[in-house]
Design a protein around this nucleic acid. Structure first.
Length: 960
RNA sequence: AGGACUAUAGCUCAGUUGGUUAGAGCGCUACCUUGACAUGGUAGAGGUCCCCAGUUCGAAUCUGGGUAGUCCUACCA
């Protein structure tokens, strides 16, 4: 083995081997365990969030696979309608071609081309992350099978009355020319204005204060062209008499009524609200209540129409209204029209004032265009009914969120869920399985033939399929079962559904998690006919942020590619990567500066295992993680530590014990005929059992950080720091018996072999690489560590006596090292140490551990001082009652030792004061549980006795 | 506007049902190339657990109120 750990030398080849040999496929044996990968966008590339997500899922998958489960990790990608279409349109745009130039079919072909070309990026990244997904079951939401599932779901929901088509206000994205759902709208803070317009009263009417106009305040002047009323609060005394009368809408010269509605807040602005039902969601509701006509004044680009399209609120055309708009605005973009209209009001003397106003502007999450509420025909899923069982499943604990607080977020959204607009005016996606005849009558079916058959439509009737496609999230909502061959075959579905855990970020709980629950429970049934949940647990992890706590995003230029942490990247390459293809090239300079500042040396190569271990160690309670380069470097060092520990073990154990002398793993820790175990051997085996228990506990609670921590501490602080060192005096002892040597060698091997299995779910590559060399020494044959059983603690191997003995030994060594370190005694100096005032147990322990003690504390001698024998003047450390004495002569300065003792005494003094304060409080003694009081008493006694001994020592030295 | 979450060492974070001398990694200081490892070893320094009240024998932990930050949902024209 190389002297240092070189991750790139081992990772790729192991992954290829695993994949080629089919180790990622379900074993077909044991209880099923299944995770569905949250499908990344096919044309994107994985970022740190995916790396985090994958690290957790693969840890769970490998853990359960080793536990003997029939394990499936289902991979795949999402077609990501809008995002993907935008990417390809942008590419075409760079060549001066629009999608309309190509036409629908050719454009879709282009997207497929791009998907073929870029889809490999993600699968390569998933492989590099070591994710043990079953590639043979890889799915894409636009695959034929999944497309069938989408059609099936649509048709059935429609039959069940849960999908309908309707003309309503939707969030219209004027840049992308499509409707989007509420969730795809981001409300962004903006500083705007509140314009106060005067609307003259008709027919000479006057307000209570004698004015001949009403003043309305608006943030969107241009929509006044579509006003169909002015509303006041029904109890607003100022305007009571005017309700039912009319105002003349300026510029348009339309008479519109003054209505009374609770919606109006009399305290805000003037208490008069212009009502534009076709361009505002609240006004739409008001309009519905008052049966007002809707004046649609905008086209799909959000430019002003020449003539308003007029509908009543029920969608019928209102022929009584003259709907022509002032010609001056026709064709103007809404923001241009806004300026013009304000100017025109001013000219008419009808602009009262302009106030600054903070508001939220709705923006499309993809296009960042200002969203326009717009009246169109769209398809909707009616969500209320679907939500009911989905809410109940979480209430009943059939689905559990981890951490639990996310359940509240889920409930609050689900209990107030709105219908879901699922149609999109895009080309890339699942075409809606609906057909129209010449009169506009709509028919829903799996295909045209079915529609004709079911509705007895002859060939003479021309049918035209709906041009629209479905929201990407519609197909994603079916992911847990559409990937398992639904609706064609329920074999896999019966085995792996409900899946075990969904691992995801909180940002898509509404988009995806909630909808998966609704869809699964509608379509999939348990054996007893009850609705089946898609997964039993939802593990919600936080976002990965940069070192400053900022969200990573391309436009900020602070994204990290997990592969760059694995392989490393030079500074120049990183800058190049972050500033290439910028939407706003101006930012490039800033990003470059920031990057050069944060990574002056570029990024070193840390390897997959270190990256994964870092993610696991940071995965605590669902909170966001600030990615800290110090952590990954530390865990790369941890890998190196494991690597070198293995080198040491192999160096000592290879070609030493043939198979005949091998003890079976299960006997490790027991005294055998040809094997003699030291207390250190029993100790490390005992500590290993504790570690196994704690890791199991952590995994059952999704506490990957604790599992990682346990592993780290066991391997580094116990196995490497102590056990390996304790093995040296045995292995290097010329007088050691063959049985003792075997005992230690085999404990070294077996604990290492077990620890590798323990660590494998978190660091798959290094554990496999080393295990291949170590397993044969442990008498284990097997092709891969992946298929070995996960270590399980055995109560019989927990050995409190051995643990106490080694704790004693550690205490003595630490005491001596402390004196050595504090007193600046050269590490090269072999010193003589005396042990005094101890029990017979102490004496026995000294005798049993003398060689270890001498080696690890670098002593010349360790001598038991018989009672009554005068000790030379010494620096002192205590192990319980026993004194460990380092004679000062020629080594230690008197004042230095006094200083050191005083420091100890100060510490003890504080402790004693603290504990005695408690104990002298009668309320504490009376009320606290007895064992707590007893513990405090013992603590006080121990501290007092120690202080007393150290004080004596102090006095003795001071007296010189 | 409502809600959630966060605040612990210089930095990144653990800290279970209230009882720990409040921990880890990184960084820092000193010493050390000793036959697994300098991607290392040994020893050490470093904390008013955001603030204020309360409950309790006892609070980093529970309650209330602040402060600061992050986020979600809804939204007043």
């Amino acid at each position: 083995m190389d002297k240092t750990y070189q991750p790139h030398a081992i990772e790729r080849s192991w992954y290829q081997t695993w994949e080629k040999k089919g180790y990622f496929k379900p074993s077909g044996q044991g209880d099923p365990y299944c995770i569905m990968i949250p499908p990344p966008n096919v044309t994107g590339s994985l970022h740190m969030g995916h790396g985090f997500n994958n690290a957790i899922m693969d840890s769970l998958i490998r853990y359960h696979r080793m536990k003997g489960h029939n394990t499936l990790w289902q991979p795949g990608c999402d077609h990501a309608g809008i995002a993907t279409q935008m990417v390809v349109e942008r590419q075409l745009g760079a060549q001066g071609v629009s999608r309309h130039d190509l036409g629908r079919d050719a454009f879709i072909d282009k997207i497929w081309e791009w998907k073929e070309q870029s889809g490999g990026t993600i699968t390569n990244q998933i492989r590099r992350l070591g994710s043990s997904v079953d590639w043979s079951r890889e799915r894409f939401t636009m695959d034929e099978g999944l497309s069938e599932a989408v059609k099936e779901a649509f048709v059935r929901l429609h039959k069940d009355g849960l999908i309908y088509r309707g003309k309503r206000l939707v969030n219209w994205d004027p840049a992308l020319h499509t409707a989007i759902s509420d969730l795809e709208v981001e409300n962004v803070d903006d500083k705007g204005s509140l314009w106060h317009f005067r609307y003259p009263l008709a027919d000479g009417a006057k307000t209570a204060t004698g004015l001949d106009y009403l003043t309305v305040a608006t943030t969107r002047p241009e929509t006044m062209l579509g006003d169909s009323a002015v509303a006041v609060h029904p109890e607003d005394a100022r305007y009571l008499g005017l309700v039912g009368q009319e105002v003349i809408l300026p510029l348009v010269n339309r008479r519109i009524p003054i209505i009374a509605d609770d919606y109006v807040d009399p305290a805000f602005g003037t208490g008069c609200v212009k009502i534009t039902p076709a361009h505002d969601f609240n006004d739409y509701e008001v309009g519905k209540r008052h049966r007002l006509p809707l004046f649609n004044i905008l086209d799909r680009d959000a430019a002003i129409l020449a003539r308003a399209e007029v509908f009543n609120i029920d969608g019928s055309v209102n022929s009584e209204v003259d709907a022509s708009l002032p010609a001056a605005y026709a064709g103007l973009d809404r923001f241009v029209a806004r300026k013009q209209i304000v100017t025109d009001f001013e000219c008419l003397g009808l602009l009262e004032k302009i106030d600054d106003h903070a508001l939220k502007v709705p923006m499309g999450d993809r296009s960042h265009a200002v969203i326009e509420p717009w009246l169109t025909d769209q398809w909707y899923v009616s969500a209320k009914e679907l939500a009911k069982p989905a809410i109940k499943a979480v209430e009943d604990g059939e689905i559990q969120f981890v951490p639990k607080q996310y359940e509240n977020m889920y409930f609050s959204w689900m209990r107030d869920i709105q219908d879901w607009c699922i149609s999109r005016q895009l080309w890339w996606g699942h075409r809606i399985p609906a057909w129209y005849d010449a009169s506009g009558q709509v028919y829903v079916g799996r295909d045209e033939a079915e529609v004709r058959r079911e509705h007895s439509l002859g060939d003479e009737i021309v049918l035209r399929q709906d041009e629209d496609v479905l929201d990407t999230w519609f197909s994603s909502a079916l992911w847990t079962f559409s990937t398992l061959d639904w609706p064609k075959d329920d074999n896999l579905l019966k085995t792996f559904h409900a899946t075990d855990v969904l691992v995801t970020g909180f940002d898509i709980i509404f988009f995806w998690v909630a909808r998966m629950i609704m869809m699964s429970m509608h379509f999939i049934k348990n054996d007893d006919g009850t609705p089946q949940v898609p997964f039993k647990h939802v593990y919600v992890h936080g976002l990965v942020r940069d070192s400053l706590g900022h969200k990573m995003s391309k436009s900020k230029g602070n994204v990290l590619d997990p592969l760059d942490l694995i392989d490393g990247i030079t500074l120049d390459q990183l800058v190049e990567k972050r500033t290439a293809n910028m939407m706003q090239p101006k930012l490039a300079a800033k990003i470059e500066k920031q990057t050069r500042n944060e990574f002056p040396q570029g990024i070193a190569s840390y390897g997959t295992d270190a990256l994964r271990f870092t993610f696991c160690s940071l995965a605590s309670t669902g909170r966001d993680i600030k990615f800290d380069m110090g952590r990954i470097e530390g865990y790369r060092n941890f890998c190196n530590k494991i690597w070198n520990a293995a080198r040491y073990v192999l160096m000592n154990a290879e070609q030493q014990d043939d198979q005949g002398n091998m003890i079976a793993a299960k006997d490790c820790g027991q005294q055998g005929g040809e094997i003699e175990l030291t207390q250190a051997d029993r100790w490390i085996v005992s500590r290993l059992q504790h570690t196994e228990l704690q890791i199991d506990k952590a995994m059952s609670e999704f506490r990957f950080d604790q599992a990682a921590q346990q592993l780290f501490e066991f391997i580094w602080n116990e196995y490497c720091d102590w056990y390996l060192e304790l093995s040296k005096p045995v292995l290097w002892d010329e007088n050691a018996s063959a049985a003792q040597l075997r005992g230690t060698r085999q404990t070294l091997v077996q604990v290492l072999e077990t620890a590798l299995r323990l660590a494998h779910p978190f660091m798959p590559f290094i554990t496999e690489e080393i295990w291949q060399r170590v397993a044969p020494l442990a008498g284990i044959s097997g092709a891969t560590i992946m298929q070995q059983p996960y270590p399980q603690a055995e109560q019989s191997k927990i050995n409190p006596q051995a643990e106490a003995d080694i704790e004693w030994l550690k205490g003595a060594i630490l005491g001596i090292r402390n004196i050595r370190g504090e007193m600046n005694i050269s590490p090269a100096k072999h010193i003589n140490v005396l042990f005094a005032n101890g029990s017979s147990d102490d004496q026995a322990r000294l005798n049993a551990n003398r060689p270890s003690l001498i080696k690890m504390a670098n002593l010349a001698s360790a001598t038991w001082l018989e009672a009554g024998t005068e000790a030379p003047l010494s620096a002192t450390s205590l192990v319980g009652e026993m004194q460990v004495l380092v004679p000062m002569a020629g080594l230690i300065d008197k004042d230095a030792e006094l200083g050191r003792l005083q420091k100890e005494l100060d510490k003890l003094g504080k402790l004693i004061a603290q504990v005695e304060a408690k104990l002298s409080n009668p309320k504490f003694v009376d009320k606290a549980p007895e064992e707590v009081v007893a513990k405090e008493r013992a603590k006080a006694d121990e501290a007092r006795s120690a202080a007393e001994k150290l004080q004596q020592q102090c006095d003795k030295i001071a007296a010189l």
